[in-house]
Design a protein around this nucleic acid. Structure first.
Length: 617
RNA sequence: GCCGAUGUAGCUCAGUUGGUCAGAGCGGCUGUUUUGUAAACAGCGGGUCGUGGGUUCGAAUCCCUCCGUCGGCUCCA
């Protein structure tokens, strides 16, 4: 994102004003919210009352904006005492601006911390006393704003209105909903064009499109929204990921368990989840005894039950329990996004590590190391850690403040010790403790959590699960909730987007496809023999002996992103050698050469086993 | 859930202002062909135009309801 001191930032900010000014010319009664610079552009929140803007209006707005740019209006800066600023907002009939100014006068920036201080014409965040407010004026459009802006409206670069979306005033869903006009802007027309091309390309990497093209998964209206069905190819990928994690974790002392998907609410009442999440859980109708059972949205309480059964003494700790369970969570319909945000089954790669206070740091560090290792091996790039802390101004965080700070400090030390790059954010913690979220951007640039590790300082005590310490006293354990791959479906989605569907060989639904040149008996027999040999080596291998041209069958295999394609005809029958066609991204050095069939198959089998991302062929 | 957009064959999409508008390409099936590293040729099937109402002599086309999808907002154990 551009920085406030950059000229590009000033251009984008100025375009926000110009866009608002254009809207005001077309709809003089328009009420304005805020209009900050964002990645690649800007937005402005507007409220036109009964009228709404739609994309059909963009041309008119852009035309008007271009007129303002052509007029080359000077951006004039001036300050007003807060009382005069309030008078201005009243006179201009700008209720949103008026609300902001009133808040600023009454309580300073602390009440307006949900907004960027730059939008408020303030010098910096944290000014608690506001006496003067900064304004900018261009032509007949005036707005409170800290700036900076370009010198005049003619000095902005290339821009384009992209979309309009609903956005709640000050981000609260109880507030009125405004319309948010999004624009992208760059210094040069060519950069803007390049950006638009990039956005088009991103669409082809969207995991939902890849899922369709590669026959991985789909969502059936008959089954329901947010409930994807994995087809054989998709399930293969998920299963490989699950196997991989299971072996990895078992080798590090994690023990796998299996717990019911249906559970009475009693358990969630005991764990405290009920008061936070019951409305987001799917329940059955009452049975004959009147009991309602819920589809589990998390495994924690179940694992805590197993803990109770297995642990008596500190000598039993740490206990590391894992489960790959299908969870169900009610998600708002507007939040659903393919495999990234679904209602179920969310196959969580879920572990709970029960530790004493002395063990927590070492265990937490181990988990961070496991993250780095797994992400390196699976080829996940461009992720970062977020230390998610509570915001004590809100009431949802249970337990006492000192304990929260103690837990937050431990995690921070672990992150620093692991030399992990991380950011800290308030009001992102779980209700039972601070956590580290592993953040990633999806193909459209939207930030998502891919995985999480949390330090639970609340639930064991609340549930009364205990152990006896070395002095014979009862203690509550700490619980590290960790999920390296998050949900396997979601992890798969990110991998698909990062690789554009060209998964490493070990994750490919089909390792090798054999294509026959013709349908003569000898050719088919040769292909079948090769198929059998491959299967014995554990390879996912198939034969395409359909009555199509070789070119067409190759094309079909390429489009399915099959890593290795082998053509079988008279030559291969005679020499028992193959010249594999290797998917481009796997190749290290250019030329493809000839290999005895057995050597080729064994090499691929080894690549699958070692999970390499490049080929040695 | 809210705001905006959108929904036509398995997939990608055409269908101007309501009147042979139910179409194309790919995929599928059948036949011919027996093919050498990204699309052989021919023919044939295939859709109550998301759903349910309404307006109209007449609706894929206009209006409303609901469902799904897309982009945001909110939420995310």
């Amino acid at each position: 994102m551009s920085k406030p001191e950059d000229n590009l930032h000033a251009m984008r900010h100025s375009l926000a004003h110009i866009t608002a000014a254009a809207v005001k010319r077309l709809w003089p009664h328009a009420k304005f919210g805020v209009g900050p610079v964002i990645e690649n552009g800007y937005y402005y929140d507007i409220d036109l009352g009964k009228v709404t803007v739609s994309e059909a209006d963009f041309e008119r707005i852009e035309t008007e904006a271009r007129k303002i740019i052509a007029e080359d209006q000077v951006f004039e800066h001036f300050n007003l005492p807060i009382t005069e600023a309030i008078a201005w907002a009243k006179k201009e009939k700008q209720p949103y601006k008026l609300e902001l100014l009133n808040d600023l006068q009454r309580a300073g920036t602390t009440v307006a911390k949900d907004l960027d201080s730059a939008e408020l014409g303030l010098k910096a965040k944290g000014d608690s006393k506001v006496e003067e407010v900064s304004f900018y004026r261009n032509g007949d459009f005036t707005d409170l704003c800290r700036g900076p802006h370009v010198a005049s409206t003619g000095k902005v670069g290339a821009f384009k209105l992209m979309r309009v979306a609903g956005a709640y005033w000050r981000g609260k869903d109880t507030n009125p909903q405004m319309q948010r006009l999004y624009g992208v802007a760059f210094a040069k027309e060519a950069e803007l064009k390049q950006h638009l091309v990039m956005l088009e390309e991103a669409k082809s990497r969207d995991h939902r499109k890849i899922g369709e093209d590669l026959k991985l998964f789909f969502i059936s209206e008959n089954v329901g929204a947010g409930l994807p069905l994995l087809m054989p190819r998709g399930e293969t990928i998920k299963h490989e990921l699950m196997n991989y994690m299971r072996v990895k974790e078992q080798n590090r002392g994690y023990q796998y368990v299996s717990t019911p998907v249906l559970t009475q609410s009693k358990l969630y009442e005991r764990s405290g989840h009920a008061s936070y999440y019951l409305e987001n859980m799917y329940g059955t109708k009452p049975d004959e005894e009147g009991n309602i059972f819920y589809l589990k949205p998390m495994n924690c309480p179940h694992h805590h039950m197993i803990y109770e059964k297995l642990v008596d003494s500190y000598r039993d700790l740490p206990l590391r329990l894992s489960e790959h369970a299908g969870l169900y969570r009610y998600e708002l319909s507007g939040a659903l996004t393919g495999l990234i945000r679904m209602r179920g089954p969310i196959t969580q790669n879920d572990s709970h590590i029960y530790v004493t206070a002395d063990q927590v740091e070492a265990e937490f560090t181990n988990v961070l190391q496991l993250f780095e290792e797994v992400y390196k091996e699976t080829g996940v790039k461009d992720y970062w850690f977020r230390l998610s802390l509570p915001d004590f101004a809100k009431e949802k965080y249970a337990g006492d403040k000192e304990r929260w700070e103690w837990a937050g400090d431990i995690i921070r030390r672990c992150l620093q010790g692991a030399q992990a790059k991380f950011v800290e954010e308030l009001d992102e913690a779980a209700f039972y403790g601070p956590k580290v979220d592993i953040q990633i951007k999806n193909v459209h640039g939207k930030e998502d959590s891919i995985a999480t590790v949390q330090l639970d300082i609340v639930v064991p005590e609340r549930m009364g699960i205990k152990y006896v310490d070395s002095e014979g006293k009862d203690q509550y354990p700490l619980v590290i909730h960790k999920s390296i791959m998050g949900a396997f479906e979601r992890f798969m989605a990110f991998l698909l987007e990062q690789t554009a569907g060209k998964l490493p060989v070990w994750l490919s639904p089909e390792h090798i496809r054999i294509i026959t040149v013709n349908q003569e008996d000898a050719t088919v027999a040769c292909a079948d023999d090769m198929l059998k040999q491959g299967q014995e080596l554990g390879l996912r291998i198939s034969v395409d002996n359909t009555n199509e041209s070789v070119g067409k069958k190759i094309r079909a295999a390429e489009m399915m992103k099959v890593p290795y394609v082998v053509v079988v005809g008279q030559k291969e029958i005679e020499t028992k050698k193959v010249t594999p066609r290797i998917r481009k991204d796997l190749v290290v050095n250019g030329d493809s050469s000839e290999y005895p069939v057995v050597n080729f198959l064994k090499t691929v089998a080894n690549e699958v086993k070692s999970r390499t991302t490049k080929t040695s062929l």
